[in-house]
Design a protein around this nucleic acid. Structure first.
Lengths: 155, 155
DNA sequence: GTCCCATCGTTAGCCAAGCTAACGATCTCC
DNA sequence: GGAGATCGTTAGCTTGGCTAACGATGGGAC
């Protein structure tokens, strides 16, 4: 009894669909925090990753520099981060989180995933363990797809 | 050794982050198929859900009617779906998939999740089983958050 | 039968987030 | 010191969200 061949593609598909619907769900929580998913994610990198350049941030978030410029500008308007010119290389822009940014990140993130957290609370021990293992695999998959140079097929 | 209390929030957070990065990854595959995630998802409902009204489609995809109008208009321009007036109730717009739409859905979906499928192929039996279980829980969580009336906190 | 209201989808107009192309400023290396 | 690389921004486009408002249709109440 080998692995059912069709099952793997199915799993990938289910994962895809699940991710879409999860994010749609969570987007509804954004109103309260005022922090969209991209901003929350970027702010998280800044808060935990210390001062980073805009380019590093763009690479970390896997978007193009102009996109990250917009996101950072938005965060800056809300006083959540600050741009600081690098004294050694003035082409670079160091981005640091403000105190408000650090506080809002924690609160906002918690609020955004509140309904998800609530749902997780309902799980029993066994389910929790399975979820844990599943997420590990999940993350591994994402790392794999990321390194698989997605658009190389054209080359 | 009880469940570590912090662990649950952490898991929710990891799941959130993982979903964001997965979708960012997959978005890169869109170029090839020309089908973005929202269009793919809506087309899927039309193809497998038979003729549906625009309102039903909007509810199924959890977006507002005007948003779905845009998405359907986009799909219609590409000849993937057609709008058909309902003969019994002329307020309604029945949306049906064209033959091309059905074909493209299968191909596009496969291509979009190709890198993910590839990654899944690399998993061993044990990992596959864990992923399977994890996804079941995952879907259960999403269903739970959906019914938990996300924005009721304001009421 | 004729209003009155509910329902449905669209239009108009806004915003966020993604992209490419092009540019100015800066650094580096020869 | 000049040439070319690197960095971030600007400009301009697309898609996909939203709300508000509207026209058309349907269904009852009277």
């Amino acid at each position: 009894m080998r692995s059912r061949p069709a099952k793997r593609a199915e799993l990938a598909d289910q994962l895809h669909s699940a991710a879409i619907h999860l994010l749609r769900q969570l987007r509804k929580e954004d109103d309260a925090s005022g922090l969209s998913a991209p901003r929350l994610s970027a702010l998280s990198v800044v808060v935990f990753g210390g001062p980073v350049t805009l380019g590093q941030l763009a690479r970390a978030e896997q978007v193009r520099p102009p996109t990250m410029t917009k996101i950072v500008t938005g965060l800056e308007k809300d006083r959540l981060v600050e741009r600081k010119p690098d004294p050694n290389d003035r082409r670079l822009t160091r981005i640091v989180a403000t105190a408000k940014g650090q506080r809002i990140l924690i609160e906002g993130r918690a609020r955004r995933v509140k309904s998800l957290t609530d749902a997780v609370e309902q799980l029993n021990e066994s389910e929790l363990a399975h979820l844990d293992r599943g997420i590990q695999i999940f993350r591994k998959l994402i790392a794999a797809t990321a390194t698989k140079t997605p658009s190389d097929a054209k080359t």
